[in-house]
Amino acid sequence: MSFPEILPSSAARAELPKALKRFRAEGASAEPLVFGSHRRAEGVVIPFDLYWQLLPAIEELEIAQIVRERSEAGEPSPLSEIAESIGLDPDNYR
């Protein structure tokens, strides 16, 4: 698959009805509509069927990002320590 043409936003807006027709006809394999400023890709419109197939991978990437951020934040604290630090006794909640 070759990289699709990058359209300016105004051209992408005009191309959208054609893209939707293509999505209906070709489903997940239809070429996406890529747009941006100065021929730099900034956004993409893809068939919903393709999005639905990609959703589990997108969610995994989001979870991985959260894990990375939390790992970089330092050592985790046990919930009991956090509770005690705000004046709660964890034994009261068992």
Score class of each variant (00 low, 15 high):
Leu7Tyr: 02
Leu50Gln: 11
Ala25Gly: 06
Leu16Thr: 10
Ala12Phe: 08
Val44Ile: 06
Arg39Val: 04
Leu54Glu: 11
Ala57Gly: 15
Phe3Ile: 14
Lys18Pro: 00
Pro17Lys: 05
Val34Ile: 05
Leu55Gly: 01
Leu20Cys: 11
Glu26Met: 07
Ile63Trp: 08
Val34Met: 02
Phe35Asp: 02
Ile6Asn: 02
Val44Trp: 00
Arg22Ile: 01
Pro32Val: 02
Leu33Lys: 02
Ser29Thr: 06
Arg40Ser: 13
Ala12Tyr: 04
Pro32Met: 01
Glu15Asn: 06
Arg40Gln: 11
Leu50Pro: 08
Ala19Tyr: 06
Ala25Leu: 13
Ile6Pro: 03
Arg22Tyr: 08
Leu54His: 08
Leu16Ala: 10
Ala19Met: 03
Ala14His: 10
Ile58Asn: 04
Ile63Cys: 06
Phe48Met: 13
Val34His: 01
Phe3Glu: 15
Ile63Ala: 15
Pro32Ile: 01
Leu7Trp: 01
Asp49Arg: 07
Glu62Asp: 11
Ile6Cys: 03
Arg13Leu: 15
Ile46Ser: 04
Leu54Ile: 03
His38Trp: 15
Glu42Cys: 05
Leu61Gln: 13
Val44Lys: 01
Met1His: 11
Ala28Arg: 09
Leu20Trp: 12
Phe48Val: 14
Pro47Ala: 14
Ala12Thr: 07
Ile58Arg: 06
